Amino acid sequence: MRFDDAPDRFKAGNASDRFSGASGVLFEQAMAQTRMAISLCDPHAEDLPIVFANRAFRQLTGYSEDEVLGRNCRFLQGPKTDPEPISRIRKAIENEDVVVVELLNYRKNGTTFWNALHLGPIYNDRGELVYFFGSQWDVSDVRAARAEEQHAKEMARELSHRMKNMFAVISGIVNVTGRMRGIQSEAAEINSRIQALGRAYETTLDNASSGSIEIGEAIRAVLSPYDRDEERLKFDGTSASMPFTTISIVGLILHELAANATKHGAWASEGGRVLVNWSLVDDDSALAITWEEHGGPKVDSAAIEKGTGTTIVDRLLSGGRGSITREWRDTGLFVTVKVPTRNAA
């Protein structure tokens, strides 16, 4: 930073003496009106004392002007102030450099605040160092928000880990029970549904600190195993986030539709395709999903509608106050599903 030429001596507490004429007046007005806490230190005096502190600085720290002027800024430090940013400040002063640090400072009454300090040199027109300028900003709320966000992410990661373990344990129990009772095929069918639920959560749960999951990612995760060549599925939909309950219902419904398409529908034929579209409807209070099959063989709709998968889907939607319609078009099955996004449990 650079200002007009300044005399060699000045009166402590009146930093504008170093700026001539109109510059001094403008300096005083700017410092008085700004809400940013600002201080100036004299680099030519012993121990770099504060020679100017505006009203915002005094309000931030709780000290009066007489208690601030002539002291080094370290008087705002305390027992929990980290020495690392202090070292960076000291180095910047030695090198006449600019530095921005966050450090814990103490007010006069002993309370702490996180100070985002911007420190830099001020030169006159001859290139001579006349001050070190410091602006202080109370970022305690910002730091608290960061800590809460980090805590939420850590909790989400832990929840993700536990849910993955839970799905693995349940899957293992189903497999063991199936072998013991001689119903391996039934156990495999149940496990396929468990795995579909796991996929719906697994790819996005690490970021679900807000208690919701991005619906598009969940849909793609559930259906990706059925589209290994990436030619049988087409997606189109919103990127909105949904509560966990909605994700559970959607994940199981899409799994049943995909299983049906593999056995009897579009994916039972070479070149069969499925188009999946989703959007928010009813003033964003519901999620609408369309499932449109093309290129599959003609199927016995009555037999499918009596199947286990159909029963599961209908009961899930009934319990979640959702709805489903099925149309057996010439091009293939067309399904419309609506799931509430609020109070879906």
Rank of each mutant, 00 (worst) to 15 (best):
D125I: 10
A196M: 01
R329D: 15
Y131K: 01
T310L: 10
N277R: 03
A221Y: 13
F75M: 02
N54E: 10
K153I: 05
V139S: 06
S241F: 00
G134V: 03
G62N: 08
T325A: 08
T325L: 04
V68H: 03
L333R: 09
A266L: 11
I324A: 07
A45I: 05
E305R: 13
M166D: 12
D8H: 03
A345W: 14
E231C: 08
E158P: 00
T310M: 15
N207S: 04
V274C: 09
L317R: 06
R179V: 02
V98W: 09
S209L: 05
T331W: 11
P340I: 06
V222F: 12
T204K: 11
L197M: 08
T34N: 11
A168H: 07
Y106M: 04
D284N: 15
S135G: 13
Y63Q: 07
T336A: 11
F75P: 01
S285A: 15
K108M: 08
V99R: 08
Q150E: 12
N191G: 03
R162W: 05
N109I: 12
M242T: 14
T331C: 12
S269V: 00
H294Y: 15
V130N: 00
D282T: 12
G237R: 02
A188P: 06
E94Q: 12
K11V: 15
L159N: 13
E94D: 11
L287D: 05
M155Y: 04
T262I: 00
N105P: 06
N165T: 13
S160A: 14
P85V: 03
D206S: 01
H294Q: 15
S185T: 15
A266H: 11
L275M: 02
N54K: 09
E231P: 01
G251E: 03
F19P: 01
D8Y: 01
V281N: 09
V68Q: 02
T204Y: 09
E231F: 02
K11H: 15
T325S: 11
L69F: 02
I247T: 14
I190W: 08
R143I: 10
W291G: 00
S160I: 05
A37D: 07
E230K: 10
I215F: 09
I93H: 00
S135T: 15
T325N: 07
S285T: 15
K80C: 00
P79L: 04
A302E: 15
G320Y: 05
V274E: 03
S279I: 04
E28T: 14
N175W: 07
N175F: 07
D283L: 11
A53V: 08
A345P: 10
